[in-house]
C-alpha cells in the first residue's frame, strides 16, 4: 500500500484536477484518472522523497483567505503606484531570517511571497536559513519582516512542522 501510494494527497489532487478537466465524474473518467494519478505520484516519489504531511487542514483554509486578501490589497496598491504620473517606489532588498525549515512550507511561502505583487523571493540560503527578498515599495523594513513572520511563517509552521 505504501509503495503504491507514496504521495496519497498528490494522487487525490491529480484525480480531482483530471475530473474537473474532463467535466464529468463518470466511472471511465474516474478509472483512467485514477491510473494516471497513481502513475504520476509514483513518478513524483522519485524526485520528492520526503512525505507531505498536512497537520492542520483547517489552517490551510485560513492561509488561503489571508493570502487572498493580501494579494487583492497589494494589487491595488501597486496599480496606484504604477498609474501615478511619476512612479517613485522605494525599492529595497531585504535579508530575512526564517525559522521555517520544512521544504514544502518554504515552497508555499516562496510562491505566496512572489505571487503577491510588490514582493519577490530571490534566493534562500539553507545553511543560515535566511532568504533574500526584493520589495517594490518599502516603508519600514522591520515592520514588513514582522508582518510576514506573524502572518505567514507561524501559520505555515503550524501546518507543516
Amino acid at each position: 500500500m505504501k509503495r503504491l501510494f507514496p504521495h496519497p494527497l498528490l494522487a487525490v489532487i491529480l484525480l480531482i484536477l483530471w475530473l474537473i478537466l474532463q467535466q464529468s465524474a463518470g466511472l471511465g473518467h474516474i478509472l483512467l484518472g485514477g491510473v494516471i494519478a497513481i502513475l504520476a505520484s509514483l513518478a513524483a516519489s522519485l524526485i520528492i522523497p520526503e512525505p507531505l504531511i498536512v497537520r492542520r487542514p483547517l489552517k490551510v483554509l485560513q492561509l488561503i483567505v489571508v493570502a487572498g486578501l493580501d494579494i487583492v490589497r497589494s494589487n491595488i496598491a501597486v496599480m496606484l503606484i504604477l498609474f501615478s504620473p511619476r512612479p517613485q517606489p522605494t525599492a529595497a532588498f531585504i535579508e530575512m531570517p526564517l525559522k521555517l525549515t520544512n521544504t514544502f512550507g518554504l515552497a508555499v511561502l516562496a510562491c505566496l511571497i512572489t505571487a503577491t505583487p510588490g514582493s519577490a523571493w530571490l534566493e534562500y540560503d539553507r545553511e543560515r536559513s535566511t532568504v533574500l527578498i526584493h520589495v517594490f515599495d518599502l516603508v519600514d523594513a522591520d515592520e514588513w519582516v514582522e508582518t510576514i513572520k506573524n502572518r505567514y511563517e507561524s501559520l505555515l509552521m503550524e501546518i507543516f512542522q
Binding site: N75, M79, L82, A115, P117, F136
Partner: peptide, 18 residues
C-alpha cells in the same frame, strides 16, 4: 515605465494573480 530589472519583476505578477 520601471527602470531596472528587479523593479520590473513585480509587474507580471499583477496579471497572473488578480
Amino acid at each position: 515605465r520601471l527602470q531596472n530589472f528587479y523593479l520590473r519583476i513585480h509587474a507580471p505578477t499583477m496579471g497572473t494573480s488578480m
